[in-house]
């Protein structure tokens, strides 16, 4: 390797580290308080819980939409949110057949959840809500 090339690589490597650093620091420092919050828009979307799956598994809604989970199975289910920031949860995460629970997602992001009775975040009975910016 020539000295010129070696020097260039050294500079690039240092720049890469330096360039990524602010982004990383920004990611660490950015909190839920800094994320946009949109008002409820009066829209609803539905996820059905059957035995033993959420349908659809992947739901996409706009921020401000109320997501409703309806238990259409014969088993009781629950919705356990992934530990994330901003946090989200329900007063009662369990719902028996015929019952429904809902949550208004006001901040864009990806919200993963699962039924702890019948699975985990990655297998059995997982689900995800992708919340996008309002169009």
């Amino acid at each position: 390797m020539s000295e010129k090339v070696g020097g260039l690589v050294t500079i690039l490597a240092t720049l890469l580290g330096a360039a990524l650093l602010p982004a990383v620091i920004l990611g660490v420092l950015l909190t839920a308080e800094d994320l946009p919050v949109f008002e409820p828009n009066g829209e609803t979307a539905l996820v059905q819980a059957i035995d033993n799956a959420f349908a659809p598994v992947d739901a996409e809604i706009e921020a401000g939409t109320e997501m409703v989970w309806l238990n259409r199975g014969r088993n009781g289910h629950n919705i356990i949110p992934e530990d994330r920031d901003p946090a989200w949860t329900f007063e009662d995460v369990s719902f028996v057949p015929g019952d429904e629970v809902s949550y208004v997602f006001q901040t864009p992001g990806t919200y993963r959840y699962y039924c702890s009775i019948h699975g985990t975040l990655t297998a059995g009975m997982p689900g995800v809500v992708v919340v996008t910016d309002p169009s």
Binding site: V9, A13, T14, L16, G17, A18, L20, L21, V24
Partner: peptide
Amino acid sequence: IGLLVGFALI
């Protein structure tokens, strides 16, 4: 060293 510094910082 440059790469290590960068990744260490990250």
